[in-house]
């Protein structure tokens, strides 16, 4: 007589994720790779044509006179003045900091930028150069002329390194005095569907942002939207970054084309608005790379004000990652006060 055995049901135990507070609250107690995936894949889709049409409609707003004056000063106060070159030297960083503190040598009423953004090994130089203007903690950029130091970390820009290296990279920058960390996500892992890995890494880096006194350096999570390619991916990655604890979601490293675009930034603002609607919590957005003119930057301000609201137009909730943008804004600013255009030699190199 033959006996039949029940076929074995093989269940892989779910991979449990790091217990990030937001994800626990929103997705629920059994936070696993699977529950995260179900959440991300259940988000409503993005219609590319509609998104781009809305972005271009926002771009047609006509900002004149008093509104333009206000917009230009707002833009300066939201800039992360950036140098991220292999050729960066202490001298270059000092020059950048000098520019951050006095953007327009001829006009002391010009506001300061929000932060300088450098590689991790340049943080101490930037902190030294800022001196008493270096902001305390993470939330005081822009207050009383305080300027933050932001460091790119986690094997920027590719992110291709072990987690241990990424965490060490981050911790070193925080110890050196960085108020903000701009990390990159592992796009390879994201594109191959390993959302849990990306999530756990963000949680680990966030933990590495902790200072000795228990406070955190702010964490900006760079999605590198130019490599994610589809708007649906950008939307998922934005949610993932917020759930894992990012204080800011940032479009790009600036090393990959396309970098920030208005539709991508609008999409990320929509995610942030949705997060706020659901939880009451405000997340920052930072478009970076490719924004070079005042005219373009004003379109971003409009998109912010009309999507998430004007209260987002503070350095705590919105930044421009840019280098050449500042000088164009200064030229426009001079034009508004003098009535005529000057030229590139009337603003300083940094």
């Amino acid at each position: 007589m033959t006996t039949f055995e029940e076929p074995a049901v093989i269940v892989t135990p779910p991979h449990t994720l790091a217990p990030a507070q937001r994800a626990l609250a929103l997705i629920g107690g059994d936070l696993t790779e699977k529950s995260l995936r179900l959440h991300l894949e259940g988000l409503s889709g993005v219609d590319a044509v509609g998104l781009e049409a809305r972005a271009s409609a926002l771009g047609t707003r006509s900002i004149k006179n008093a509104s333009k004056v206000r917009a230009l000063d707002t833009i300066i106060g939201l800039i992360d003045l950036t140098t991220l070159e292999g050729a960066d030297t202490p001298g270059k960083v000092r020059s950048l900091v000098a520019k951050a503190l006095a953007p327009d040598a001829a006009d002391p009423t010009t506001p300061r930028v929000a932060a300088v953004c450098v590689y991790g090994d340049m943080v101490s130089e930037a902190v030294r150069a800022l001196g008493s203007s270096h902001a305390v903690g993470s939330d005081s950029a822009g207050l009383n002329g305080a300027v933050n130091v932001a460091a790119v970390a986690t094997a920027f820009p590719s992110g291709r390194a072990s987690l241990a290296v990424k965490v060490a990279d981050t911790a070193e920058a925080v110890v050196a005095g960085a108020n903000e960390i701009d990390m990159v996500i592992d796009r390879g892992a994201f594109l191959s569907g390993r959302y849990g890995l990306v999530f756990d890494q963000i949680v680990a880096v966030k933990e590495a942002c902790r200072r000795a006194d228990g406070s955190h350096a702010h964490l900006k999570v760079i999605l590198e939207t130019g490599e994610l390619t589809t708007y649906d991916n950008v939307r998922r990655a934005s949610w993932l970054a917020i759930l894992a604890g990012g204080d800011f979601i940032k479009t790009s490293t600036g090393k990959v084309a396309p970098a920030a675009t208005l539709p991508v930034t609008l999409l990320m603002l929509q995610v942030v608005r949705e997060w706020h609607r659901l939880t009451g919590e405000r997340i920052g957005v930072k478009p970076a790379g490719g924004i070079r003119t005042s005219k373009d930057a004003i379109k971003y301000l409009v998109a912010v004000a009309e999507t998430v609201g004007e209260e987002w137009l503070t350095p705590q909730l919105f930044r421009f990652g840019a280098s050449s943008l500042l000088n164009d804004v200064l030229l426009q600013r001079q034009k508004l006060s003098t009535g005529h255009y000057s030229g590139a030699d009337y603003v300083t190199m940094d």
């Binding site: 707003r61 004149k64 333009k68």
Partner: peptide, 10 residues
């Protein structure tokens, strides 16, 4: 004045 009170642009 708030930013969203765009100045008239007739």
């Amino acid at each position: 004045m708030t930013f969203l009170d765009y100045a008239p642009a007739p």
